[in-house]
Amino acid sequence: NAQSTPGGGGTSVALSTPARAGNTGGSFTGGVDAQTNGLTPHQNQVLFLIKSCKGSEGMGFEELKARLQGMNVNTIKQALDFLSNEGHIYSTVDDDHYKSTDGD
C-alpha cells in the first residue's frame, strides 16, 4: 500500500549467507541467523531450504515437508505464503514449487 519514494537508493537488507552451505542435513538449532530479516524461525527455515535448492523448478512442497519433519504443514504453508507475499520466494512450475528470489 505504501508508495515507495524512489531515489532513496538501495539500502537492501544484507541477507547473511550462512557459511554452512555444505551442511545439508541439519536442523536449524536456533541461533543468530534464525532471526534475520524479521522473519520467524520457521519462515527462515523454509526460506533457507528453498535457497539451498538450486534446481530450476525450485523446491517442491513435498520435499520441504520431508525436510521439515516436525513442522506443522499449516505452519509451512503459512511461511510459504508470507515469504511469497514479501517477495522472498515465488512459485515456479506450479503452486507447490518455490524458488528463492535471491538465488541467482
Binding site: 538501495g10 539500502t11 537492501s12 537488507v13 517477495g87 515465488y90
Partner: peptide, 20 residues
C-alpha cells in the same frame, strides 16, 4: 516457463518495494 519468469519478476518487485 513464461509463468515462472512472470512470478519471479513480480516477486522481485515486491522484494524491492519492501526494502526501499
Amino acid at each position: 516457463l513464461e509463468r515462472i519468469q512472470r512470478n519471479k519478476a513480480a516477486a522481485l518487485q515486491k522484494l524491492a518495494a519492501r526494502h526501499v
